[in-house]
């Protein structure tokens, strides 16, 4: 499906303004983009997180599609239940047989990587026709930046501070995209908020598929990462250009790398503009910077190999 912004802009906005996310938070843009592709016949479930809280502060809601407020751990389970109910109602003739409804579950990295991982895994395994979008901002930003399993090694958060003994988070991050891919579902993709056309194309493809699909999208959080509000898109772009966050999709076992940066930007250039890594850039006593660069280079080579092998 070709994405045409001009055509899209003529359609009504399904996530309106007036929600209470921080100024410069890129996450509402992700929701808007997904909804512009999905259209009004969509049911959204949202796991606990920044966007769940800020878009639906009672008695207001920013959503113009049916929306279910879920807890941290059960968003994927709730949405898979809605999808099962839709299939039953369609069989009984209460919903016309040709009426297609999209089911989208959203969750942050806390809800997807950690707390809601079991329900996400279950929903993917059961094969519901639903899309799960994880907006990954690398920590529990809603409660004020606590480490999650998406937090990169060395990053400073409230629960993994930099001090005289340890420097930031000690553990490496979990690769959720690979975890979900291991469920052998038809479509898994990784996107970035800096490439909206790429993300919207991925959403369109995911919604076409008669089965579960998953998109992991990077969303810089200027409060937690420590940068200026207007730089949040720029940070996502740099993450892609440094290859720290490669854009790829796996469509029925076929790998495709969507963005191959022509010039290699060292990871330290991306770290330098974020306050959460400033202790590492100032003096990297544990060698974490070099470790990151090594990991990125290794993962990139592996990714290209996988792409070539699956053709």
């Amino acid at each position: 499906m070709a994405i045409n912004l001009k055509e899209m802009s003529a359609r009504p906005e399904l996530l309106v303004g007036g929600h209470r996310s921080c100024a410069g938070c890129a996450a509402p843009a992700i929701l808007r983009q997904a909804l512009h592709v999905a259209g009004p016949d969509t049911v959204v479930g949202f796991a606990t997180g920044c966007m769940e809280v800020s878009t639906t502060i009672y008695p207001y809601t920013a959503w113009r599609v049916p929306y279910i407020h879920c807890a941290f751990e059960n968003c994927a389970a709730t949405v898979s239940g809605v999808e099962a109910a839709y299939r039953v109602l369609q069989r009984k003739g209460r919903i016309p047989a040709d009426k297609k409804i999209n089911f989208i579950a959203f969750g942050g990295d806390g809800a997807s990587y950690d707390i809601g991982f079991q329900s996400l895994s279950g929903a993917m395994e059961r094969g519901h026709r639903m899309l799960y979008v994880c907006y990954d901002n690398n920590a529990y930003m809603n409660t004020g930046t606590q480490r999650s399993s998406a937090t990169p090694r060395g990053a400073m958060t409230n629960t993994s501070p930099n001090g005289s003994i340890i420097s930031g988070k000690q553990q490496s991050r979990k690769d959720l995209t690979a975890c979900v891919l291991a469920h052998n579902i038809p479509y898994v993709a990784q996107a970035s908020v800096s490439n909206p056309i790429d993300f919207m194309r991925k959403v369109a493809r995911a919604l076409e598929i008669d089965g579960p699909s998953f998109i992991n999208i990077l969303q810089p959080c200027h409060r937690g990462w420590g940068c200026k509000p207007e730089d949040s898109i720029e940070l996502a772009r740099l993450a892609v250009e440094t290859r720290w966050w490669p854009l790829y999709e796996v469509d029925h076992g076929r790998w495709k790398v969507n963005n191959k940066p022509k010039t290699v930007v060292p990871v330290v250039d991306w770290f330098r503009i974020q306050a959460r890594f400033k202790h590492m850039v100032a003096g990297d006593r544990d060698g974490i910077l070099a470790w990151h660069q090594e990991q990125v280079d290794k993962a990139w080579t592996e990714l290209l190999e996988k792409e070539e092998k699956s053709q």
Partner: peptide, 18 residues
């Protein structure tokens, strides 16, 4: 180009006829 419109978090960029 409508890049501002698609990236605006607050749906605050107004577009008419593209």
């Amino acid at each position: 180009c409508l890049r501002c419109w698609i990236l605006c978090p607050d749906s605050a960029v107004l577009v008419e006829n593209g």
